[in-house]
Each structure stands twice: as structure tokens, then as C-alpha cells.
Computed example of a mutant assay.
Amino acid sequence: MLLKGDYKKIEPASGAIIMAIGIFLIGTVEAFPILDIQLGKYLAFILLITWIVIYKSLSVQFFHRDFLIPFIRNPVNSFTIGTWIAGVSVLCNVFLKYFPGILLITQAMAILNTFLWLFFY
């Protein structure tokens, strides 16, 4: 069901920021031991909060008629959905690195992300 009404618009490629910060937290941060060892878990949690805020806005926006129909009609715009999927994948990898104890939650996120990928494939 497509929604009508006002909503806060967000750039569809905003999921790329989750992907970029996550890639930094997975690999590059190891060059900065203070960030990796002492602040890594906090940075990963901040990334989770950022992900929640961005993806909530993207999800609400996605189901509005004035966004979805022009978005689907332009095939180039549909590639930005790939940043949403890649962002969740990278976030799962960040969780595996900094929070290995929540493997079940990470696996659930990965399964949901796989369904999202299959839906938009």
C-alpha cells in the first residue's frame, strides 16, 4: 500500500554513509589502535544508531507514492537501493568484529538483508 501525506525526505543514496563508515571500522581503523581498541565498540554503536535513523527515514519514504513511482521509473535511481543493502551487509560485518556475542541478531539482520536483496534483484 502506498502512503500519502507529508514526510521528511532523505536522499536515497544516504545508505552509502553507513557502508563507508562501516568499511572504515572493519579495516582501516586498525591503523589507529586507540580508535580500534578503546573506542571501536562505541563507534560501532554510533554507527548502529545512525543506521536506525537513516533507514527509518528511507523506509517511510519508500512507501510514499510521490517518491516510489518516479524512483522506480528511473533505473539509475534504483541502483541507490544497492547502497541500502550494502550498508546493512557492512554493518553486520562491523557487528561480527566488535560484538561477536550477538551473532544471532547479526544473522537475523543478514537474512532480512538477503530477502531485501532478492526483492530488489
Rank of each mutant, 00 (worst) to 15 (best):
F62L: 00
I52E: 13
N77Y: 04
S78C: 13
I69L: 04
Y55Q: 07
G15L: 14
L2D: 00
I72W: 14
K8H: 07
M109W: 09
L68H: 01
T83P: 12
G22D: 07
I69N: 04
V90G: 11
R73E: 15
K56C: 06
P12G: 01
I17H: 15
I49P: 01
L35P: 14
I54E: 07
I26E: 12
I54W: 05
E11L: 04
F32W: 09
D6F: 03
F67W: 03
Q38S: 12
F32P: 12
L96I: 03
L68W: 05
A110W: 10
Y121P: 00
T114N: 08
K41W: 06
I23A: 11
Q107K: 13
I102L: 01
I46E: 15
A20R: 08
T50N: 15
V88Y: 05
L2W: 05
C92S: 14
L3N: 14
I21V: 07
L118R: 12
I17N: 13
I34G: 10
G22K: 02
N93E: 11
L91V: 07
P75G: 01
N77T: 02
P33C: 02
F115I: 00
S59C: 02
W51T: 08
F67T: 05
M109I: 08
L118A: 13
Y98I: 03
L58D: 06
I37G: 03
G15R: 13
I10V: 11
L58K: 03
T106A: 03
V60P: 04
Q107I: 00
G22S: 00
I111A: 12
L3F: 12
Y55A: 06
I37S: 09
A110D: 09
V94D: 08
I21T: 08
T114L: 11
Q61Y: 02
S89L: 02
